[in-house]
Simulated assay, not measured.
Amino acid sequence: MKILIADDHDLVRDTLVAFVEACGDIQTETAPDLDTACSLVDSSGPFDLVLLDLNMPGMNGLDGLERALSMDKAPRVALISGQASREVAEKALECGAAGFVPKTLPAKSLVNAIKFMAMGEQYAPVDFMTAEPATAEHPMASQLTGRERQVLKGLTKGQSNKEIARDLDLSEPTIKLHVKTLYRKIGAANRTQAALLAREVGLF
């Protein structure tokens, strides 16, 4: 099995080669950018798999993937990245990529993924592809302490200070103080307004 690993970080490239060659049955070549990778495909191909770092020089997003896929001696091209979103991974697969490999994969899983793709299968880790996209936290949330957020959650449920105090195992005067502080922080005049503001920005 013969694969090409292209990544502009020497350490990442060397580590990937070490992982892969430890298997004993995979021959590797490396490149630091897309132009070098394409030259190697022409001069040393065909490769069973070409693994391209999404963010290395020459890639220009998915344009680099499409360029590599158009080469006769690179029938199977996959992306590897430490930063790409699920949306980018999905687009890469739609373009015809052999797979998408997050750099966070454990070594053994990474090698198995490479073998899997080189043998003609399409690979993308299920947990990455099904993860909920992270949502940016609203500025209101960052203004509040963890305890104040717990109290505000109680307000959105329509709870009284006494009920919130019971749930959080705190005294009622302490809850009253937290309520007063969070009113000031989020610009609310009363409990109803605080609850409405929290719901409006999607805090709860």
Score class of each variant (00 low, 15 high):
residue 4 L to I: 07
residue 4 L to P: 00
residue 9 H to R: 10
residue 10 D to F: 11
residue 13 R to Y: 05
residue 14 D to W: 09
residue 15 T to S: 13
residue 17 V to E: 03
residue 18 A to R: 07
residue 19 F to P: 02
residue 19 F to Y: 15
residue 21 E to F: 09
residue 21 E to H: 03
residue 22 A to M: 09
residue 22 A to T: 10
residue 24 G to Y: 06
residue 24 G to H: 02
residue 25 D to S: 12
residue 25 D to T: 09
residue 27 Q to R: 11
residue 27 Q to M: 09
residue 28 T to D: 07
residue 30 T to C: 10
residue 32 P to W: 05
residue 34 L to E: 06
residue 35 D to C: 01
residue 35 D to V: 08
residue 35 D to S: 11
residue 36 T to Q: 12
residue 37 A to N: 01
residue 39 S to H: 14
residue 40 L to F: 13
residue 41 V to E: 02
residue 45 G to E: 09
residue 46 P to N: 10
residue 47 F to T: 06
residue 48 D to P: 04
residue 54 L to T: 02
residue 57 P to K: 07
residue 58 G to I: 12
residue 60 N to G: 04
residue 61 G to T: 14
residue 62 L to T: 11
residue 62 L to A: 08
residue 62 L to R: 02
residue 64 G to I: 11
residue 65 L to V: 14
residue 67 R to H: 08
residue 68 A to F: 03
residue 68 A to L: 07
residue 68 A to G: 05
residue 69 L to I: 10
residue 69 L to V: 11
residue 70 S to C: 11
residue 71 M to T: 10
residue 71 M to P: 03
residue 72 D to F: 13
residue 73 K to P: 07
residue 73 K to E: 14
residue 76 R to T: 11
residue 77 V to Q: 03
residue 79 L to W: 01
residue 80 I to C: 13
residue 86 R to W: 04
residue 88 V to Y: 02
residue 89 A to H: 04
residue 90 E to N: 11
residue 91 K to H: 13
residue 91 K to E: 15
residue 92 A to L: 07
residue 94 E to A: 15
residue 94 E to Q: 15
residue 95 C to Y: 09
residue 95 C to L: 14
residue 98 A to R: 10
residue 100 F to P: 00
residue 102 P to Y: 06
residue 103 K to V: 02
residue 104 T to S: 15
residue 104 T to H: 09
residue 104 T to Y: 03
residue 105 L to K: 05
residue 106 P to H: 04
residue 106 P to F: 01
residue 107 A to N: 15
residue 109 S to F: 02
residue 110 L to V: 03
residue 111 V to G: 08
residue 112 N to T: 09
residue 115 K to A: 07
residue 115 K to M: 11
residue 118 A to Y: 03
residue 119 M to L: 15
residue 119 M to N: 15
residue 121 E to F: 11
residue 123 Y to R: 05
residue 125 P to W: 05
residue 126 V to G: 06
residue 127 D to I: 05
residue 127 D to A: 14
residue 128 F to H: 09
residue 129 M to E: 13
residue 130 T to P: 04
residue 132 E to Y: 06
residue 135 T to G: 09
residue 136 A to Y: 04
residue 136 A to L: 13
residue 140 M to Q: 04
residue 141 A to D: 03
residue 141 A to F: 05
residue 142 S to V: 14
residue 145 T to Q: 08
residue 145 T to P: 03
residue 146 G to D: 13
residue 147 R to Y: 07
residue 151 V to E: 00
residue 151 V to Q: 00
residue 152 L to V: 00
residue 156 T to H: 04
residue 158 G to P: 01
residue 161 N to C: 10
residue 161 N to M: 04
residue 162 K to I: 12
residue 162 K to G: 05
residue 162 K to Q: 14
residue 163 E to N: 11
residue 165 A to D: 00
residue 166 R to C: 08
residue 166 R to H: 11
residue 167 D to C: 08
residue 168 L to N: 06
residue 172 E to F: 01
residue 173 P to V: 10
residue 177 L to P: 00
residue 184 R to W: 05
residue 184 R to M: 07
residue 185 K to P: 09
residue 186 I to A: 02
residue 189 A to C: 08
residue 191 R to G: 01
residue 191 R to E: 11
residue 191 R to T: 07
residue 193 Q to D: 13
residue 195 A to F: 00
residue 198 A to N: 00
residue 199 R to W: 06
residue 201 V to E: 08
residue 201 V to D: 04
residue 201 V to G: 02
residue 202 G to Y: 04
residue 202 G to T: 14
residue 203 L to P: 01
residue 204 F to H: 06
